[in-house]
Design a protein around this nucleic acid. Sequence first.
DNA 1: GAGTTTGAAACT
DNA 2: CAGTTTCAAACTC
Length: 594
Amino acid sequence: MGESEGSEFPPKKLQQSETADFPAKKLARQLDFTQGVLPELQPSPVVVTPAKPESPKSRPRLNAELKDGTPKKQKQCNCKHSRCLKLYCECFASGTYCDGCNCVNCYNNVENEAARREAVEATLERNPNAFRPKIASSPHGTRDSREETGEGLVFVKHNKGCHCKKSGCLKKYCECFQANILCSENCKCMDCKNFEGSEERQALFHGDHGNNMAYIQQAANAAITGAIGSSGYASLPVSRKRKGQELFFGQTVKDPSFHRLGHFQQASHIRPAAPSSPLPSNPVARAGNTTTLGSSKITYRSLLSDIIQSQDLKELCSVLVVLSGEAAKTLSDQRNSMKKRVEDQRDTFLASSTQERLQSQKEFDADKIVSNDCLSANHADEGGPDDSSLDGVDMPKGRPMSPGTLALMCDEQDTIFMAAASPNGLMGHACNSSSQLPCGQGMTEAYAEQERIVLMKFRDCLNRLITFGEIKGKFLSFRQRCTPVDVQLTAISYCNYICHLLCNLPFQLVYCDETKCSSSARTELGNEKGPPGKGLANTRTGTGSQQGPLSNGVVKVPATSKPAQMVTSVVATSSSDLRKIPSLPQNGDNKLKS
DNA sequence: GAGTTTGAAACT
DNA sequence: CAGTTTCAAACTC
């Protein structure tokens, strides 16, 4: 009954060129009847794919054979009763034609395009998300699975969740397990053992095989390149099962049936829920806390991992340091020459009149005040966007220095920018100046200008990373059906990571859409968007200054590259459709030369 | 490779 | 929404 159509179309051997029996004729009549019903679904040599932009392995089952870390050729289905027009069929579910499969009575091919389209529509009618990746992760999605492992981000969760009863979610029957992710609060499984801290799971992964970590990582890679679809950002099998945490957090537990017990018990395995974190979805807060998690050693191997090496990061740091030094030197020279001129003028003034002398003294006092502000800024991390205006009151020429800038310049923790530069005597000099002398107007201007130069270079570097990701993404989009957006997001994650390393910024994926284009720097904390009081306590750059020095370094992703939206179209994906996908930043921020 | 188990999908 | 059936993959032998 379930397959009523199946009863109408007994699974007689009909594949491809074989003779159509009665059911096939009946289907043929249906096809004739339905042709033209979907005028928008024009026949296309390309697979009518509701999920074409995404990976063909968005279905977990298709992702089962990726232990070598290399995406396999699409698996061949063996459907017999579904005509490959139901989601039972992996090929159909993945939005691809059957090709070289062992299926029987297959209609998932070009010859039966009409039937296929009808089936797609029927499927979507039942479930509009039928062709969306089950294992999805998105910066726009729920963020409560976001984790940081020290090397990457995790936003992975089964959208629907599994419903396993007997497998303990530790067999491939379980979609979560198969996708190499932990069960989440979306799951309604019984006796789940697929949660972090599960002994059974650990035994499975860490037991006999010394290379299990490699396997996990490879699987994660596979997920990145396909399993989680285009919405997949960095995928890691370290997302935590949160049902227990939900309970702790006081969120609704809609189904307190007994099988929940297993999940509830899991809560005891999970790290104690932060009592002061009622909003696990707060990405920033989570990012800030994740350093204490550290329970998973699984690392995320990015698509850029073979492009960006740790050495590159070091070099980047070195370049920034050198740049900073050069900027300091240049500005120092300029300052000296200017100082000379000012002193000459001052002498002239001193010689001219007592009144003017008094006026000069006032100006000098004003400088002192500014310097005090600078020094106190070390402890004023929460400075607001308007704070910089205070600094700028007496600096009509100079660029106002935001609290974040002051922190960058004066904070002792900035070893990269300051202490590391001291060997060349340039930045070191500047730093000493700041510590020994009042941060007067000239120094403020110098720092601001110096910072501007360095950050501009840094921005260029980050943009280059985006470009790398774009290029590789385009390549992969052909080779591995990984959308450029996937890789672009990966590149962005790297940028954020670098920001994190260099500036001690909290991780935050930058992702823009039409309505809210934001930068990591501006949306971090203290911004109007951020839940007050829930951000990182010690985020020096969290000033949210609209004029902040990082505002030029915004890394943006085109809004329409929102992955989840890219996989929902029922319309056949043609080359022109692909062209419509604005996967590349079009704005001026990305005037890059590879 | 055949048979069994499993859980998602489909259906009532 | 819950229960049942169908289906194909995963698993076992």
